[in-house]
């Protein structure tokens, strides 16, 4: 029985109350709907234009540039060649720098993870007093990389506080040359990127329902067992995000290696900028940048593949 029949079956005295309107034709104009749909895209247009023009096009341009011939007196020539790829992948200077950059990325990522996890655990426990600690973690983000490196420049200098402390403790007789080493670069980068690791992990930890830990406790699992088998795996999405972010950022970092690193065996980012700004060899510079991007991409893909099962099981 349809609704129309049902209402027709109503007692007559009620039916009389409804004046019969004009015939009901199931028609629907859609004028109102088109306007609603166009709105969002109109609002997004400035952002899309900005990004397509000044992010998309430059990356395309970088690929094109890497295929250009070298210029004479100009940054690039008019012909096209694959020569720069042969150079970038064949020259031990560049390959060595790439290797060092990737190694640096791995060390910095591991260091960040080690320092960040306790902090993330601490922050995830929430509570009003933790605001202060959030501020500590976030404040370096608001201070330029340059300024933070500058602090390490003072701390690690020959007459700096670290050498003074070490000497005061009688651990060394002569001041150590700490600055302008690969260790200094790693230390500086770890410091720069700790917040990038802490925030995603703390976010993931906060999403873990507290009753899971309680369930683990209630089942008689010890703290460490519960941590290893419940908390740590469930925070993996955060670890994964932080790891990828820090790795990519540290391999491609420029300022810190430039300020805290030595002159000699250097990193690919430094060599790339030298080619671009020092030698005006733009095609080679573009090629080196792309090789770096490809290498990072491969490592990240490898990492994703290796951790796929864990990530799938712990997502959300």
């Amino acid at each position: 029985m349809s609704a129309a029949d049902a209402s027709a079956a109503r007692p007559a005295q009620e039916g009389a109350r409804v004046p019969s309107g004009r015939p009901l034709t199931p028609s629907l104009s859609r004028k109102g709907r088109g306007r609603l749909r166009a709105g969002p895209w109109l609002l997004a247009t400035p952002a899309i234009v900005l990004l397509v023009l000044f992010l998309g096009a430059p990356y395309v341009d970088m690929v094109v540039m890497s295929l250009r011939t070298a210029g004479h007196g100009t940054p690039y020539g008019t012909g096209f060649t694959l020569h720069h790829y042969a150079e970038a992948l064949g020259n031990p200077v560049y390959l060595g720098a790439l290797g060092r950059s990737l190694m640096l990325g791995a060390i910095v990522t591991a260091g960040c993870l080690l320092l960040s996890y306790p902090i993330a655990l601490h922050l995830a426990k929430a509570g009003r007093s933790h605001l202060f600690f959030y501020a500590i973690v976030i404040s370096p983000l608001l201070v330029g990389v340059l300024v933070r490196n500058f602090g390490w420049l003072i701390i690690l200098s020959v007459s700096g506080p670290l050498n003074q402390v070490l000497r005061g403790l009688g651990l060394i007789d002569m001041p150590l040359r700490l600055l302008f080493t690969q260790g200094a670069v790693a230390l500086g980068l770890i410091h720069v990127f700790v917040p990038f690791m802490v925030l995603p992990i703390a976010g993931a930890l906060r999403k873990i329902p507290p009753d899971l830990a309680e369930a683990s406790d209630a089942l008689g699992a010890g703290r460490w067992f519960g941590f290893w088998h419940v908390t740590l795996p469930l925070s993996f999405p955060g670890i994964q995000a932080g790891t990828i972010l820090v790795f990519v950022l540290s391999v491609s970092a420029y300022v810190t290696p430039a300020l805290l690193g030595g002159q000699g065996r250097t990193f690919l980012s430094i060599l790339t900028v030298q080619e671009l700004l020092g030698s005006f060899a733009w095609p080679l510079g573009a090629t080196l940048a792309l090789v770096m991007a490809a290498a990072m991409g491969l490592v990240v893909l490898g990492f994703l593949a290796a951790t796929r099962r864990l990530a799938e099981r712990t997502a959300r």
Partner: peptide, 12 residues
């Protein structure tokens, strides 16, 4: 990476 974006922008 900021470095890559800057390089692309340098050319473009």
């Amino acid at each position: 990476p900021e470095l890559l974006t800057s390089i692309g922008l340098l050319f473009f």
